[in-house]
Computed example of a mutant assay.
Amino acid sequence: MGPTRARIAIDAMGGDHAPAEIVAGALRAQEELGIEALLVGDPDQIQAYLKQHNSSAHLEIIPSEGTIEMNEEPLGALKRKPKASINVAMDLVKQKRADAVVSAGHSGAAMAAALLRLGRLRGIDRPAIGAVLPTLVAGKPVLILDVGANVDCRPKFLEQFAQMGTIYSQYVLGVSTPKVGLLNIGEEPCKGNDQAVRTHQMLQDNPKIPFVGNAEGRDVLSGQFDVIVCDGFVGNILLKFAEAVGEVALQILREELPQGLNGKLGVTLLKPNLKRIKQRMDHAEHGGGLLLGVDGVCIISHGSSQAPSIFNAVRLAKEAVDHQVLDRIQSCYGRKTAPASEGE
């Protein structure tokens, strides 16, 4: 029996380009991926943008009131605005009316709403945001977690990230035996701070984690590792730096290629190659990060996401649902869900 038709709740009001780009990405996702898109937000605004697209697709609209602004403190804002789009979207997952939620809005608010409304999976102390980046090996991405959910981490949190990352890499990215690394300043087990040394030992001792050792900064995009574990402070800096390097490299190519190969003729000849380069390097191709460790599939997209990135975020959500990532993580830690958290 094949996977059921996934129902994805999409926060239409979250992000720099909401709701126009969100609506466009959702429409494409429903048409091409065979999912049911539930657009959460202001019905009038959503309907206005839907009319701009010549599409026969019918998207269900779930009304909400307001959104969490980027300058607002997440927990307080979520409580002041119980009908905000991210709250309503999370409630759809909690009520089993949707299988997953996608949001390009306030990432802190999305994580807090997931914790408050969905709760943590039993055995998981802290959820982690996993981001997929390209590597030097074509078709072999690397999963990095955490990239922003937890600034400070104990070794046991990092061990849990490694185990969740292993499951995600196996069942969504299709790596039979993922090579898991711990981000550090050297390869030797004794390198790094106390957290790194203790975490190294825990990962090495855990038979469920295919740990291969420390990964230095130069190893992250080498293709030698399938999963790299770090705290959210370092991971967020690493993610944004990698995105910036990709943008710089693409810009340099645009500027320098016309200088050779007979100018514009050379660029025309190389256009298919440039398109493939962009696809390999552009963070929009990956859509965002999966919040692992909460009792629901939640994709946190870039605030600057446009339609292609939203499409890929929905694709990512669908893959997580189809491959039963939550059930597989729960099987490692027990079936029950930890209670929703107020301030963790």
Rank of each mutant, 00 (worst) to 15 (best):
A26D: 11
R154Q: 14
Q195W: 00
L270V: 06
V40S: 07
V227S: 04
Q95C: 04
V137E: 14
E73W: 07
L133H: 13
L115M: 15
I299K: 08
T177D: 11
K271L: 08
E31M: 02
I228Y: 07
A9P: 13
F311Q: 06
R315F: 00
G34T: 11
F311P: 09
V172K: 02
K83R: 15
A320P: 05
F241M: 13
D231V: 09
L27D: 11
D322A: 12
G2N: 15
A338Q: 08
G66I: 13
G15D: 07
L290R: 00
I209D: 00
P210V: 08
V142F: 01
D295L: 05
A338V: 05
L75H: 08
E319F: 00
T166W: 02
D42P: 07
A57Y: 01
S85T: 13
P258V: 04
S305I: 05
A284G: 03
G266C: 01
K140R: 15
S304Q: 08
M90V: 11
A284Y: 02
G266L: 02
A57P: 08
H58R: 14
A48E: 14
G108Q: 06
A284M: 01
E342V: 13
G105L: 03
E255L: 12
H17P: 10
P308T: 12
L253Q: 04
S301Q: 10
A20Y: 01
V267N: 01
L316G: 11
E255R: 15
G303C: 02
L253D: 05
E319R: 14
Q201D: 14
D146S: 04
V294N: 09
T199R: 01
N206G: 10
D322Q: 14
L59A: 08
N236T: 12
K96N: 14
N71H: 12
A112K: 05
V88T: 12
I22D: 01
S222R: 12
D226C: 02
I86P: 06
D11R: 03
I86R: 05
I8W: 01
L183E: 09
E342H: 15
K191I: 06
N236I: 09
G266D: 03
V180P: 01
V267K: 07
A149H: 10
V212P: 05
H58E: 15
R117F: 00
A113M: 09
L239Q: 04
H200Y: 15
N71R: 11
N312I: 08
L250G: 12
E36W: 00
I10R: 01
L250C: 14
D44K: 08
K179V: 07
V227I: 11
F311W: 06
E69Y: 03
T135E: 02
A100Y: 01
L261S: 12
N184E: 10
N214E: 07
Q170V: 03
G260R: 11
K275F: 04
Q330H: 13
M13W: 04
